[in-house]
């Protein structure tokens, strides 16, 4: 008896997760812009970090973004049917 209401709740939770996953994917390019533009705030010339360090930073940030994108898109489910209702279900 107690299991009956749990079933729909579980389903809603999974589609809720999917929608938040899409939100996370939407945020990816913004994260990317922030991370990749960050070096512009650093001091220039001989006093600042050398190009070697900047290079290491950029490639680390780059790898991080790729890894993030890989992990997020891998969990993305392919349900076209849901996409149509997406705007309405947005706040769900």
């Amino acid at each position: 008896m107690a299991q009956m209401p749990r079933q729909p709740l579980f389903l809603a939770r999974s589609s809720y997760r999917q929608r938040r996953l899409r939100d996370a994917i939407r945020f990816l390019p913004i994260t990317g812009i922030v991370l990749l533009m960050l070096p512009l705030l650093w001091p220039r010339g001989p006093d600042g970090p050398g190009n070697g360090q900047v290079l290491i930073y950029i490639f680390s940030a780059w790898s991080f973004l790729i890894l993030l994108s890989f992990l997020l898109t891998r969990r993305l489910r392919n349900d076209d049917a849901e996409e149509g209702n997406e705007p309405k279900a947005e706040d769900g």
């Binding site: 899409r22 939407r26 990816l28 990317g32 812009i33 990749l36 290079l55 780059w62």
Partner: peptide, 21 residues
């Protein structure tokens, strides 16, 4: 010009990361 060449690759990277948009 140092690391500026990276911008040519960073632009497309950002576009691909923003594929959902």
């Amino acid at each position: 010009s140092g690391l500026e060449y990276l911008t040519i690759y960073l632009g497309p990277t950002l576009v691909m990361l923003g594929w959902w948009w």
